[in-house]
Structure formats: C-alpha cells, structure tokens
Simulated scan of single mutants.
Amino acid sequence: MTQLIRTQPSKEVQLEADELIVTKTDSTGHITYANRVFMQLAEYPENELLGKPHNLIRHPDMPRGVYRLMWKTLQAGREFFGVVKNYTASGNYYWVLANVTPDYDSKNQLQGYFSVRRPPGRRAVEAVIPVYARMCQLESSHNKAAAPDASMEWLLAELEKQGHSYESFVLSLLDTNLTSGKTA
C-alpha cells in the first residue's frame, strides 16, 4: 500500500478548474469506484483505493464534527455540500467542494454514496480555515467519543447566529453558482 511520506513540509496541490473528482462508496463508506482525476490527485493507484474506507485521505485539519454532520445529513436521505481538506499519498493536501448524495436502487434501497468534488475557490477555503481550526480545538478538549458532536453543535450554533445552515454557509462562499454555471 502507498505510504504517507512526510519528509518535507506538505504543500497544497490543486484540482484544475475544469476537473471533477468522482467516487462511489458502499453504504459503509468503502470506495467502490474512483475516477482517474481522483487517483492522480490523491496519488493512489486504483488497487489501493477500491474497498478501502474513503477516510483514507482524511486530513487531520478536518474536524470530525464536519463528518458527523455529513453522515447525519446523508442518513436523513439528503445531499451534503462541504468544503473538505484531504491528504495525498505523499502527504501533500488539497481542498475540494464535496457534493455527496445517497445512491438508491430501483427499490429505493440505499446502495451507497456518490460524490462529486470540484475546486472550492480561495474564498471558501479562507473562510473555513478558522472555523475548522476552532472545531479541532474544541474536539481536542473533549474525549474522543464526544468530540465530533461537540464541534458539530458549536458549528451549527455559530452558523444559526448568522442565519445559516452549514449547507447555506458553504454555498454562500462559492465563486460559482452550481445551478446555473455562472460566475457569482
């Protein structure tokens, strides 16, 4: 398996503006499909991705509370939008706007999840960095079991003060309107 090599300080690598990462997972979050863009950016060959948990690329700067919110949203049958920082196999990192949706079969049975990721834009990244840092700080002051809920609750309370849900907050940060394809 590809080893995470951290011999040098990590650097940011970027998804090109016209590139999309596409992955599919089973209902437990294990990768069942990964497109070539994902494999190239994450620096993993297909045989090291298929069957592995998607959190293989989770960056430690990402608060677990964001993932708790994602799973709660998906388990409620709704799509999730989030700005996410991921690791590459060599220890570099990249940011994406993730859109994750439940994938149902013809009998409306959950088969897994379908995710499309694109570049989030610098404005979105700069806006979430201090929010995520605060969430990680909160998580470090709680036991492992309580940490994700504590940071998620803080996030939702802070966003509610601003009149936002997490989804509306994320979508308000985008440089591109996802529904029309026009620059905001």
Rank of each mutant, 00 (worst) to 15 (best):
T2L: 02
T7R: 05
S10Q: 06
E12R: 05
V13S: 04
E16I: 02
E19W: 00
V22A: 11
T23L: 08
T23I: 12
D26Q: 05
S27M: 04
G29S: 05
I31V: 10
N35S: 04
M39E: 10
A42H: 01
A42S: 10
A42C: 05
Y44T: 02
E46S: 08
N47H: 06
E48W: 00
L50P: 13
L50A: 12
L50I: 15
L56N: 07
R58E: 07
P60Q: 03
D61Q: 11
P63C: 07
G65V: 04
L69S: 11
K72C: 06
L74Q: 03
L74C: 01
L74Y: 07
R78F: 12
F80N: 13
F81P: 04
V83C: 12
V83W: 03
V84T: 11
K85T: 01
T88H: 01
T88I: 01
A89M: 02
L97P: 14
V100T: 14
Y104F: 12
D105K: 02
N108L: 11
L110W: 12
L110V: 11
L110K: 09
S115D: 12
V116M: 11
R117V: 05
R118I: 15
R118M: 10
P120E: 02
G121M: 05
G121L: 04
R122L: 10
R122N: 12
R122Q: 14
R123T: 10
A124K: 09
I129H: 07
I129F: 04
I129P: 00
I129L: 09
P130E: 10
V131F: 00
Y132V: 01
A133T: 13
A133M: 12
M135N: 03
C136Y: 09
C136E: 03
E139T: 09
S141F: 05
K144Q: 15
K144D: 15
A145L: 11
A147V: 00
M152G: 14
E160T: 15
G163P: 06
G163F: 08
G163Y: 13
H164W: 07
Y166H: 15
L171K: 09
T179E: 14
T179M: 14
G181M: 00
K182Q: 09
A184L: 15
A184E: 15
